[in-house]
Amino acid sequence: MQNLIIIDNSRFISLKIRIDLFKRLSKDYKVKLYYLREDSKIKENIYISDNFSTQRLGLITFIKLITQIYRTDKILTFTIRPLIIGFLLKHICPRLSLYPTITGTGPLIDSNNWIYKCLRFFYPIILSSAQHIFFHNRDDANYLTKKNKKQNFTITGGSGIEISQKKSTKINYKIPENIPKIACFSRLIIDKGILHYLKATEIIFKEYPFMKDNIYLAGIKYKGNFKNNTLNDSDLQKWEKAGGIYIGQPSNVKAFYSSIDIICLPSFREGLSNVLLEAGNADCLLMSTNVPGCIDIIENDCGIVFEPRSTESLYKALKKVIFLPINEQIKFKNNLFEKNIKKFSKQRVIQDYLNIIN
């Protein structure tokens, strides 16, 4: 049995959304997951199979890994830092097959920060050492492979979701009998478009007072980011006074989606939005920006589209969705249900990996 090393940023994220892929790979390989960051949310050991183990990758562990790397056959990485580590291991042991997964590029492509400018230069060089690359959206794939037309890559449906076996029986809303509940579920940072959401919904509260206490914000106050990318508490408090409800991180995500009619994601860029996938699978109506990682899900009449970084565009989209006729709601949801089955199921994503890695 061959040895497969997986390197990921977060143990929690890795075991939360990729566990089914790891289970399947451990049937064919002896798998070792190295993670860069421990998370308090998962402290206990999770049993996947006798062929699967996990370990945090610190300096000492990395040195030990280098001494044992010649026993390894393949490396699968997720996100940027694990890719760089995989690239170094590949150069130490050239016979290794490297399979990076680009889950998203964040500000890499658009930022004028000198760090990101350097990364834009070196990224294609690093990726050129890969046997095959997995991307979560077509824009990232087109941008990062344009300098190497011979680069092999696959665009997967993100990490995939468990598709509902049957469509939900959630009741469609209609003003004034059934007022819709709208929510944005995201890390509370500027790049997720949260400020535009707060400002646009404040206008909605003034114009349509019946929407007060029916518009929500969910997610954690994210501190591990640049200061100018962090939402101020004062902005959130002002919004709550205007009529919004901040609920923090939902303890039961499925119950949260079941209680919401419309999920809004005003992000500036995503890898492939798991929130939109999960919410759509829970029969929520989707509205999001025309950006990579969001438009891949809601294009072709699978949701309401608006422009990024624009409070006015979001405000107009909110007005449209609040009064959306029931037949339009049904059309969007049916289209999304069919797309999820074809492109975003876990089974489809796992098969994409198996087709290449095996």
Rank of each mutant, 00 (worst) to 15 (best):
Y70E: 03
Y70K: 12
I63A: 13
I80V: 09
I69E: 00
Q55F: 07
Y116V: 03
T103N: 10
H136E: 14
I115C: 15
F121L: 15
L96Q: 03
L83M: 12
T54G: 12
L65A: 00
T101L: 15
R95S: 08
H136F: 13
Y70Q: 03
N148K: 09
K150L: 13
K74Y: 06
T77L: 04
T79C: 10
G106H: 02
P100K: 02
L65I: 00
I75P: 06
F122I: 13
F121A: 09
K90G: 01
I60D: 14
L108I: 10
R71H: 04
A130K: 05
G104K: 01
R138K: 15
S128W: 07
L83D: 01
P94H: 01
C93P: 01
L89K: 06
F62C: 08
R95M: 02
F122W: 09
I125V: 10
R95F: 02
I84N: 03
T77E: 01
T103I: 15
W114P: 13
G104H: 04
K43T: 06
K147W: 14
T105M: 14
T105Q: 11
Y99I: 04
Q131H: 10
I102P: 10
I46T: 01
K90W: 00
R138C: 09
P82I: 06
R56N: 09
G86E: 00
R120K: 09
D110V: 13
N45V: 05
K41E: 12
L59A: 11
L96P: 07
A141K: 14
I69Y: 00
L57K: 03
T101C: 15
Y143R: 12
I66E: 01
D50C: 14
D140A: 13
I133M: 07
L65F: 03
G104I: 02
H91M: 11
H132R: 08
D73H: 04
T103L: 13
T54F: 00
R95C: 07
P100A: 05
I42S: 05
I109L: 11
F62W: 02
L89M: 04
H91Y: 01
N112H: 13
K150C: 14
S97I: 07
Y143I: 15
K117A: 14
T61H: 12
Q55A: 11
P107C: 10
D140T: 10
L59F: 08
I115F: 14
L89Y: 00
H91G: 08
L98M: 05
T54I: 09
L76P: 04
I75L: 05
G58L: 15
L127Y: 03
F134L: 07
L57V: 05
A141L: 12
P124H: 02
I63Q: 08
P94Q: 01
H132M: 06
L144W: 04
I85G: 00
C93G: 00
T72L: 02
D73K: 07
I48E: 03
K150G: 13
D139I: 13
P124V: 00
N113C: 11
H132G: 10
I60L: 12
Y143F: 14
I80T: 10
I92K: 10
Y143S: 11
D140Y: 02
L57M: 05
